[in-house]
């Protein structure tokens, strides 16, 4: 595994993503749901909303890094607000 050049922060990052995926898979099996149509006018399931949240969060972090030179945890707060909005309205 040495060749992969692991660091603790990246390991934690991947553990969080993997845990989210597992949690949402278990949720989908235990509590099946019907897709709903939100403000984007597309059908989404919980998994879709998680994908939109993660992809959106990546761009929020990049935008924060490129445009605003504040501390990066600021972007994380924006991401959490974004995630709540996606799960509520999309």
């Amino acid at each position: 595994m040495e060749w992969m050049a692991w660091t603790w922060p990246t390991a934690i990052f991947f553990i969080v993503i993997a845990s989210l995926l597992i949690a949402f898979t278990v949720l989908a099996i235990r509590f099946p749901e019907t897709p709903r149509v939100g403000i984007l006018r597309i059908e989404t399931t919980r998994g879709d909303r998680l994908f939109i949240t993660l992809l959106g969060s990546a761009f929020i972090n990049l935008a924060w890094l490129g445009l605003i030179s504040g501390p990066q945890w600021g972007a994380l707060i924006v991401c959490l607000v974004f995630a709540a909005a996606v799960f509520r309205w999309v």
Binding site: W3, M4, A5, W6, T7, P9, T10, F13, F14
Partner: peptide, 10 residues
């Protein structure tokens, strides 16, 4: 892809 992520912060 994971390796690329690891490289990107070092």
């Amino acid at each position: 892809l994971m390796t690329v992520v690891n490289y990107s912060v070092q």
